[in-house]
Amino acid sequence: MPPAVSPLMNASYDGLVQVTELGPLGMITLRGDLSNAALVKAATAVAGVKMPGLRGASCNGDHGILWMSPDEVLVLCPHAEVATAVATLGAALQGQHALVADVSDARAVFALKGAMTREVLAKLTPADMSPEGLPVGELRRTRLAQVAAALWLRDKDEAQVICFRSVADYAFGVLKSAAHPASGVGFF
């Protein structure tokens, strides 16, 4: 199998914040009853982090679990670990009502770093980007300009954004535009 290739070859832009398309990242959709002890045990064992609560993002480096909906989480891991993680989850959930799907190659991930991260995102999403509206560690599924996205703040000055791979170039373009040095409004 050929090696994984990131959608934009790790494109980067420095403006009000640094916008970087992250390289291939392992992403596994896990659907089922999120209160099921076997599902929680399997997901947390693979990711090495605790199961997040409602709208939560529990991450440690390249590993994590993102709450996506009442019956869905996104398990994050290094791309090289995806096949093993999918097999491990599938074996642990055998006979249970659950779905395990590798969606790594269908998504693009961007990192935003800098003191104006909230302001840059606020220009593109209808979601409340204030510290009260989106606390660090809380995930929001929303729109990024004209495309669906999920975003969360890893800390007060760093966010990650996931969108479909097919719109990665568009997403990078609007993030660059919102991060242009002359576009600051000083709201946050």
Rank of each mutant, 00 (worst) to 15 (best):
D14W: 14
V161S: 10
G23R: 03
P7L: 14
G64Y: 03
S6I: 00
G64K: 14
R31C: 09
G133Y: 07
V100N: 05
E72H: 06
L89I: 05
P24E: 10
Q96Y: 08
S69T: 14
A83N: 12
D128K: 08
L134K: 14
R55D: 12
V5R: 07
F188M: 13
V120T: 05
Q94F: 08
G48C: 14
A178V: 01
V174L: 04
K50L: 04
A101W: 08
L99K: 03
L16C: 07
A42T: 01
G32M: 13
G32I: 10
A179C: 02
L54T: 14
V5H: 00
Q96W: 15
D62K: 13
W152N: 00
A108M: 00
V161H: 00
Y170I: 12
A4L: 13
D169V: 02
G23T: 10
Q18N: 09
A149C: 02
K123A: 12
H97S: 13
K113I: 13
V46E: 00
R141G: 13
V147C: 05
K41S: 11
F187Q: 03
S58V: 03
P2E: 03
T125W: 07
K156L: 03
V49G: 01
H63W: 10
R55S: 09
R143G: 05
S166P: 05
R118M: 10
V161L: 02
V185R: 15
R107G: 01
S69P: 09
P126G: 04
A115T: 15
Q96V: 01
G26L: 06
R165M: 12
P181Y: 09
V147G: 00
L8G: 11
Q146T: 01
H180C: 11
L134T: 15
D155K: 02
L39Y: 05
N10C: 04
V174A: 04
F164E: 13
S183M: 03
G48I: 13
T88C: 15
A85M: 00
G173D: 09
A80I: 05
L134C: 15
T142I: 14
H180I: 02
E119I: 07
L89Y: 06
L93H: 02
A122I: 01
T44H: 04
S12L: 15
L99M: 15
L99T: 11
A115F: 05
P131A: 13
F188Q: 12
T88M: 11
V86C: 10
G137A: 06
G173M: 12
A108V: 01
K50A: 11
L89N: 07
T29F: 00
H63V: 15
D62R: 13
A83Y: 11
S183A: 12
P181H: 00
C59H: 14
L153K: 12
V103P: 07
A91P: 08
A178Q: 01
K123H: 08
R55V: 11
V109T: 09
G15N: 02
C163D: 04
A148H: 07
R154S: 06
E72M: 12
K41I: 01
D157P: 00
G32V: 03
K41M: 06
L121G: 03
F187G: 14
L39K: 12
R118H: 11
T44W: 08
M51H: 04
K176R: 08
L66Y: 09
H63G: 04
G53W: 02
I65E: 10
V75M: 02
G61R: 02
A127R: 00
L30E: 00
K123G: 15
V49A: 10
A101R: 05
D33M: 03
P135S: 00
S12E: 15
R154T: 06
P7D: 06
L74R: 08
